[in-house]
Simulated assay, not measured.
Amino acid sequence: MLPSSSGAAPIHRFRLHPRAVAAVRRSMASANPTAAPPPPLPSTPGPKAVHVVVKGRVQGVGFRGWTAETAESLDLAGWVRNRRDGTVEALLSGDPAKVDEMVSRHIPVGPPASAVTSVVTSPVDPVPPSLGFEIKFTL
């Protein structure tokens, strides 16, 4: 017992015997035998793919080569190319977390000589990883 400074009744602490705890757990588990089994764990999501249009100073600064190198380091498939309007477009496909990392952390920064002002993404169908990553001709 702990001393009481307020004059209230003392607090009694007790411990249950491990067998008593086990018996209570067993009875609780068997109390509802028709309970539904736990839901299955979420399955691993499939590949994700996005089409990206990058605006700013992104041509003539090595953006396509940098994009291909960065995408390959993240095991992404797809392609990148310059467009006649001065933008760069890419298709990035692979693990959803790595696609998100590329779009949110790498593309907005770009290579050292670039100055990205906008990144516009839209979902597309994934491409097979066996295609790898390529640099395409200007569209």
Rank of each mutant, 00 (worst) to 15 (best):
A35C: 07
A35W: 01
A36M: 06
P37W: 08
P38H: 03
P39D: 14
P39E: 13
P40K: 05
L41E: 11
P42M: 10
P42W: 04
S43I: 12
T44V: 15
P45G: 13
G46V: 12
A49G: 14
A49W: 00
V50F: 00
H51L: 15
H51M: 15
H51N: 14
V52T: 15
V52C: 15
V53S: 11
V53A: 14
V53P: 08
V54Q: 14
K55H: 13
K55D: 13
G56F: 00
G56A: 12
G56V: 04
R57G: 04
V58Y: 03
V58T: 02
V58G: 03
Q59R: 11
Q59I: 11
G60E: 01
G60C: 10
F63V: 02
F63S: 02
F63G: 04
F63D: 00
F63W: 10
R64S: 01
G65P: 00
W66D: 03
T67P: 00
A68D: 01
E69P: 01
E69K: 02
A71P: 04
A71M: 04
A71Q: 01
E72Q: 01
S73W: 05
S73F: 12
L74W: 05
D75F: 01
L76I: 09
L76S: 03
L76V: 06
A77V: 10
V80I: 15
V80D: 08
V80S: 07
R81I: 05
N82G: 09
R83W: 06
R83D: 09
R84P: 13
D85N: 08
G86Y: 14
T87Q: 07
T87M: 02
V88S: 03
E89V: 13
E89R: 15
L91N: 05
L91M: 13
L92F: 13
S93C: 07
S93V: 10
G94R: 02
G94H: 02
G94M: 06
D95H: 11
P96C: 01
P96K: 06
P96H: 07
K98E: 13
K98G: 10
D100T: 02
D100G: 12
V103M: 05
V103Y: 00
S104R: 06
S104G: 03
R105W: 04
H106T: 01
H106I: 07
P108D: 07
P108V: 13
V109Q: 14
P112N: 12
P112S: 14
P112F: 04
P112Q: 07
A113R: 15
A113V: 11
A113D: 14
S114Q: 10
A115D: 15
T117A: 03
S118Q: 13
S118W: 05
V119M: 11
V120T: 12
V120M: 05
P123K: 00
D125S: 11
P126F: 02
P126D: 07
